[in-house]
Amino acid sequence: MAPRHLERHMVQRIGWLRAAVLGANDGIVSTASLVVGVAAASQGRSEILLAGVAGLVAGAFSMAAGEYVSVSSQADTESADLARERGELATQPAFEREELANLYVARGVELGLARQVADQLMARDALGAHARDELGISEITTARPIQAALASALTFSAGAALPLLAALLAPPPLIVPVVSAAAILFLAILGAIGAKAGGAGMGKAVVRVTFWGALALAATAGVGALFGVAA
């Protein structure tokens, strides 16, 4: 008996990986930027930490709510498409069979064989065949609102805790450079981890996240310094 060949594709992780990377990245960037902006305005450590903690809590709930609403909208659209397809299968089975066969023909399968494949797939699971091959909906890519919301909230909180820890440990005069450097380092690590988990190249991912993070930190530091001087 031939050994069973198991394949693990990175696309299977796309649902939770996207939400997790987005949450952690946003947690690091937004909280570090908030801390740097307040610190640049010459505020004390207690005010800086209070602003950071408030940003962490608000951001975690915002990320969870945003992901849940967004992915729920996707799930609603998928459900509507499946309901429409279910109705068409009930009322126009011959047309739907030919439509499925034509999809396989477009991919290079001969018409006769494509019709046989469509017949066999529809006999087993007609809605599943049309969902996968006509609508592009599969078990791997289907929307999971709760999973996305939890992943975003938890990873945002974890990401936001890192610059807060750096602000807590840094001497007050060095909070801005220490938090900025720590945030860039954390973003680089996050980019590398996300690329590794997704099976992509690390270099481009690291440059991408650190560039935008550095830009956000520079902008908020400038705003904080401006308002601090103005005050």
Rank of each mutant, 00 (worst) to 15 (best):
Met1Trp: 10
Met1Phe: 14
Ala2Arg: 10
Arg4Gln: 11
Arg4Ile: 15
Arg13Pro: 00
Arg18Lys: 12
Val21Trp: 07
Leu22Thr: 00
Gly23Asn: 08
Val29Ala: 04
Ser33Arg: 05
Ser33Phe: 11
Ala41Phe: 09
Leu56Met: 12
Val57Glu: 10
Val57Gly: 04
Gly59Thr: 04
Phe61Met: 10
Met63Gln: 01
Ala64Gly: 14
Ala64Glu: 00
Tyr68Pro: 03
Val71Glu: 10
Asp76Pro: 03
Ala80His: 07
Ala80Cys: 05
Arg84Gly: 04
Glu85Leu: 15
Ala90Asp: 15
Ala90Ser: 15
Thr91Ser: 14
Ala94Trp: 06
Phe95Arg: 15
Phe95Ser: 06
Glu96Ser: 08
Glu98Ile: 06
Ala101Ile: 05
Val105Arg: 08
Ala114Thr: 03
Arg115Asn: 10
Asp119Tyr: 14
Ala123Asp: 12
Ala129Phe: 05
His130Gln: 08
Ala131His: 07
Asp133Gln: 12
Glu134Met: 00
Gly136Phe: 09
Gly136His: 11
Pro145Gly: 02
Ala149Asp: 01
Ala153Tyr: 06
Leu154Pro: 03
Ala158Cys: 13
Ala161Pro: 01
Leu162Ile: 09
Ala166Arg: 00
Leu168Gln: 12
Pro173Asn: 10
Ile175Tyr: 11
Val176Ile: 07
Ser180Pro: 01
Leu185Pro: 02
Ala188Tyr: 12
Gly194Ala: 10
Gly194Cys: 07
Ala195Met: 11
Lys196Trp: 15
Ala197Leu: 15
Val206Asp: 02
Val207Ser: 05
Ala221Val: 01
Gly222Trp: 14
Gly222Pro: 12
Val223Ser: 03
Ala225Ile: 03
Val229Pro: 00
Ala230Tyr: 12
